[in-house]
Design a protein around this nucleic acid. Structure first.
Lengths: 140, 140
DNA sequence: GTGCTTGCAAAGAATTTGCATAATT
DNA sequence: AATTATGCAAATTCTTTGCAAGCAC
């Protein structure tokens, strides 16, 4: 699958650029992530990779999230979900029913958020916009 | 303190309207919440109320959050923080440094979010906008 | 060889649940 | 009296950490 190859290559590059080592466990995690369509929890990845230690799964996911390969969305209760970061800056559409997470982008929204950031006292580091919804699928 | 009185009264009303009982532990929690300026964790409330059971603290906070007395914000890592809901619909300014949570409102933002909601497939239930920043205080 | 990585198990942190007891209405 | 609520402890869930052994470079 193309996505798998490109993600693997990207991960290799990133590890190198960070001075981190390319290891079998990290590759296994990256390969599994590449096969995922939507968002997933760290635990679910751990469950699917019994041959990789839980700590390594968590450490690798954090590493990839910090490197921008994965992005983290928060369910309404705060549970983190990760998904492959396909586009540079985006927001999330989170289905409250099936917990699916979709990416969402709006240049108009970004423009306004940028303007608002200028008005906000302090130094704005970033923002997060999530829509909670019932997805078309769950509406039947 | 005025704020305390009004929140107490509000909580009494809400309990009544929900058919829930007015109890000493719930009043203690409500009174402590009323004295809080910013956002707080459930655990911090529990720690400050040794005479109230942890389960009761958590149950009461959830009750008040569902009733709209408290609102819940999520720190970047997903940890929930609660604060008294002073205004109807608002968003949050979260300081990544001191974890202070401030309310934030923008009619223009609401308008745009409403428009976007119409374009999003599925039934939009709500949205959340958070700005992560370094607050003026933490900038020194 | 040197130092980053792994895996395991244990430690933690936050929150929920079961259930007998106590309190409200 | 009939229920709802409390409190305690145990159970859960998710995540991190310590550390000896292993592997990449």
């Amino acid at each position: 699958m193309m996505a798998t190859d490109s993600l693997d290559a990207r991960v290799d590059e990133i590890l190198k650029s960070l001075g981190r080592r390319t290891t079998a466990p990290r590759r296994q995690v990256a390969r599994l992530l590449a096969s995922k369509r939507g968002a997933f929890s760290a635990e679910s990845i751990n469950a699917e990779l019994p041959e990789v230690g839980r700590a390594t799964v968590y450490r690798t996911i954090r590493l990839l999230a910090e490197a921008g390969v994965l992005c983290k969305a928060l369910l309404p209760d705060g549970s983190p979900r990760y998904s492959i970061d396909h586009s540079w800056h985006h927001h999330h559409l989170i289905c409250s029913s099936c917990e699916t997470v979709e990416e969402f982008r709006s240049s108009e929204l970004e423009r306004l958020l940028g303007e608002l950031s200028d008005e906000i006292p302090g130094q704005v580091l970033g923002h997060q916009v999530d829509f909670y919804l019932t997805c078309p699928n769950c509406l039947q």
